[in-house]
Amino acid sequence: MSSFLALTPDDWEIIRLSLKVSLVAVALTMPIAFGLAWVLARLRFPGKLLLDGLVHLPLVVPPVVTGWLLLLAFGANGPAGRWFADWLGIEFMFRWTGAALAAAVMALPLMVRAMRLSIEAVDPRLEGAARTLGATRWRSFLTITLPLSLPGVLAGAVLGFARSIGEFGATITFVSNIPGETRTLPIAIYSALQVPGGEEAVTRLAIISVLLSLGALIASEALSRRAGAGRGGHVL
């Protein structure tokens, strides 16, 4: 039994890769998600509904379609893909960077939702009070809006991390299933299921998967409770 649950070096590599992909995805998405959340929470402009819809699209479109769209845009011949390759030297095809990009796109709507709620919960009249006390718009944002929304923002980031760990459809469509590059936990489980006698590996990886996601969800919920003490701080 003990040998059954002992992780093999391959398992460890899969876990390391999954953590790397998810952490990079969340770290890069966080400022973008926060910016979008702030814009959606605080500004009124024509086209806001459209932007809101676009942000949420990955939540409702079949992941395989999102993966295919990423392939068109960020593939070797896609306009965005060429731009990243030429200017930043970053390639996505069949690389872990592509897996991170797919995870980021899929996590974005969840992160924006959670962050938007926490920004909307900050009374804009507090920002007004800060202005009359001598704070510029920027300083009032840094000293009032940001700290008051921070627990919710972190909860959104942790939720995005959990979503990234579980990302499957868009990733396998976009960057395929390459051991050591794009074979993250869910894709490794899928692969093991295709192999006769792979049940042990499936069980091990599935348990890890559940533990990681559960831990992230609990962390996210704890953070949003802190954020919304009395405001009802659920992000799901």
């Binding site: 009249r125 007004g128 009070a129 202005r131 009359t132 704070a135 510029t136 718009r137």
Partner: peptide, 12 residues
Amino acid sequence: LAPERRGAGYVF
């Protein structure tokens, strides 16, 4: 003038 330059002490 921006609010921060008006010198108002505002009690809400």
